[in-house]
C-alpha cells in the first residue's frame, strides 16, 4: 500500500510537530509512506474565494505530486474535503479522479481504511472536548450532525476511546462553527473573532482541559482567542494524542 503524505501549508509552517506526529504514527503501521517533496497547498484559499482560475495550477501541482499513490493521507479534514469535493478547476483526467477518490483525512484513514483497533502506546488521562471542523463534519461525515435526525456516531471519538484515560465532556453547542473559515478569519475578522470567543467560552464551561480536533486550522484560531481571553484551555491535534506524544 503506497501512501502519499500531504502536510497542509499552515501546518508545515506553524504546527510542524503535528506533521511529525502524523508521519510517526503512520510509520507504526508498516505502510510504505512517502512525503512528496514538491508539495505546497490544496488550493482551498483560492477556491473558497471563488477564484477557480487562480486555483487551477495549484490543483494540478497537487495531482502531479500525488497521482502515483494508492492512498493520499493528510491530517486535515478541511483540506481533504477540498481535494475530494472541490478539485474542479482543472480537467477531470483519470489522474485527477484517482487522486480525488483516494484522498483521506487521517481520522478516516485510521478508522475506515486500516481500521486501527488499539493505540497501546498512548494514554491521555484528561477531560477532552472534541471540536469538529465543519468540512470534516458536514463534508466528510466524521460524525453525526446535530441538525439531522440520524443515529449518533463519531469517528474521532471512536479512535480516542482506544486511548487509555480519555474522558469526554460535552459542549452546549456541539457542532457550531468556530468562525475560522479560512480567509473568513481575516476578511470577516469581527464576526470570526466573536464566533471564536463564544466557542472557547462553551469549551471552558464544559470543564474541558483539552480541546482536540482533526484540524489544526480551527484550533489555531480558537487557541488565539482562548489565550487572549486568558482561559486555561489547551489545544491539540488528535494525532498528538493517538501517537502518545503528550504524556
Amino acid at each position: 500500500m503506497k501512501v502519499g503524505l500531504f502536510i497542509p501549508c499552515y501546518m508545515d509552517a506553524l504546527e510542524p510537530e503535528v506533521g511529525v506526529s502524523t508521519l510517526k504514527l503512520l510509520e507504526r503501521f508498516n505502510l510504505d509512506i512517502t512525503y512528496p517533496f514538491d508539495q505546497t497547498c490544496c488550493g482551498q484559499l483560492m477556491t473558497n474565494t471563488g477564484c477557480q482560475k487562480e486555483a487551477a495550477a495549484t490543483e494540478a501541482l497537487f495531482v502531479k505530486n500525488f497521482a502515483y499513490f494508492d492512498y493520499i493521507v493528510m491530517p486535515s479534514g478541511s483540506c481533504t474535503h477540498q481535494v475530494r469535493a472541490n478539485f474542479t478547476a482543472i480537467e477531470q483526467t483519470e489522474d485527477v479522479k484517482h487522486v480525488r477518490r483516494n484522498t483521506y483525512d487521517l481520522v478516516e484513514f485510521l478508522h475506515d481504511i486500516i481500521r486501527v483497533d488499539a493505540f497501546p502506546w498512548a494514554s491521555f488521562p484528561y477531560k477532552v472536548a472534541i471540536h469538529y471542523n465543519c468540512n470534516a463534519l458536514r463534508g466528510l461525515r466524521h460524525a453525526s450532525m446535530s441538525e439531522l435526525r440520524e443515529p449518533y456516531f463519531s469517528k474521532p471519538k471512536d479512535l480516542l476511546k482506544k486511548v487509555r484515560g480519555v474522558e469526554f465532556v460535552d459542549l452546549e453547542r456541539p457542532d457550531e462553527c468556530c468562525g475560522f473559515g479560512g480567509t473568513f478569519s481575516v476578511f470577516e475578522e469581527g464576526v470570526s473573532a466573536k464566533m471564536g470567543q463564544d466557542k472557547v467560552i462553551d469549551q471552558y464551561k464544559s470543564g474541558a482541559e483539552y480541546v482536540v480536533s482533526a484540524d489544526s486550522s480551527c484550533l489555531m484560531h480558537q487557541k488565539g482567542c482562548a489565550q487572549r481571553m486568558k482561559l486555561p484551555l489547551k489545544y491539540v491535534h488528535i494525532v498528538q494524542i493517538l501517537n502518545g506524544d503528550l504524556q
Binding site: D12, L14, E15, P16, E17, V20, E189, A193, G224, R228
Partner: peptide
C-alpha cells in the same frame, strides 16, 4: 486584534 498569534516554530515540517 482579538486573537493571539500562533507560536512560531524553529523550523518547518518540510
Amino acid at each position: 486584534r482579538q486573537r493571539d498569534l500562533p507560536f512560531t516554530p524553529k523550523e518547518t515540517f518540510h
